[in-house]
Design a protein around this nucleic acid. Structure first.
Lengths: 165, 165
DNA sequence: CCGTATCCATTCCGATACTG
DNA sequence: CAGTATCGGAATGGATACGG
């Protein structure tokens, strides 16, 4: 078996997410969808992606429940691609990735697109992680409670050193 | 030119991030690093990844500044792989992805690993996005301020409908 | 135990041509 | 415009064999 390893059944939600989204192209498609892209051509121009690849990704995202397609309201036979609730729930992921990129992947003077609160025109607040009681949480403050391999309502869990999952 | 499209120079931080991380394997390596994995073999067992792939990804993550490698303290000639500050800054990304996976990628009864606050043993609070003034922000409340193509301190910007960037 | 090097099937993805 | 079909080069990634 040479197929790329899949994580459909992985007990780690991070792996599941990664598996559901599919690949990086898909995430950028989702980003564009948040930016208002709906039509095939919009995605294609924005991404500079080959049409066959784009078609495949759109289909995969639809199957994953991240996008849904509907007849476009322009009367033609075209379709438009819209985020589902599941897709919309990816917003914090995109924003977290965006903030990381802004802080870590640009040289100081370098220009980049920014996500702004449209009421105030100011950037969003940095994403912060909080415990249930509201305290800020750092990676070291966390443990991953692992699930033993397997079937049905498998019980055994074990806590391991500070982690993300 | 057939090489996979790269985003080294893309003005969108999401694209830059995606480009820097490299691929999904890399993100799972980072996840494992947060979980305490340091050694080649730990990553390999945890991920079930081929050794050559793992070696390539570790090297790429090192070049990207996400990991650094140092001689392992066991005296041997082995190395260990540690998160840099840049890598540690990915924590919110991993957690956001994890929360999305928990909520969207598991059937109700299905078991999965969980990330817990080690003080209280309780899961972290759901990631929330806030405006600069502290108000919660939904995707519709945002606009992407785009940067025109190009050079140096390019000026022109334009706001587009609600988005993630 | 920690990697590197090689091999090879599969997949990816860009380009192009074609259809409605 | 919105796709589908096909092609071909490149990269992916698993398996294995091999050195430190």
């Amino acid at each position: 078996m040479v197929a790329r390893t899949r994580f459909d059944a992985d007990p780690c939600p991070v792996a599941r997410s990664v598996n559901a989204i599919g690949d990086w192209w898909s995430l950028l498609i989702v980003r564009d969808a948040f930016d208002g892209s709906r039509r095939f051509g919009e995605f294609q121009r924005s991404l500079g992606i080959a049409k066959n690849i784009l078609a495949a990704r759109l289909r995969a995202l639809e199957e994953a429940g991240v996008l849904r397609s509907a007849p476009a309201p322009d009367g033609g036979s075209r379709r438009e691609y819209l985020l589902t609730d599941k897709g919309r729930a990816l917003f914090p992921v995109i924003v977290a990735l965006r903030q990381w990129g802004e802080e870590q992947c640009f040289t100081p003077g370098e220009d980049h697109s920014r996500l702004l609160d449209r009421r105030t025109g100011r950037p969003l607040r940095r994403v912060q992680l909080h415990a249930a009681d509201g305290r800020p949480v750092e990676p070291e403050d966390t443990v991953v409670e692992k699930v033993r391999a397997a079937e049905g309502a498998g019980q055994g869990t074990a806590a391991e050193a500070g982690g993300a999952g």
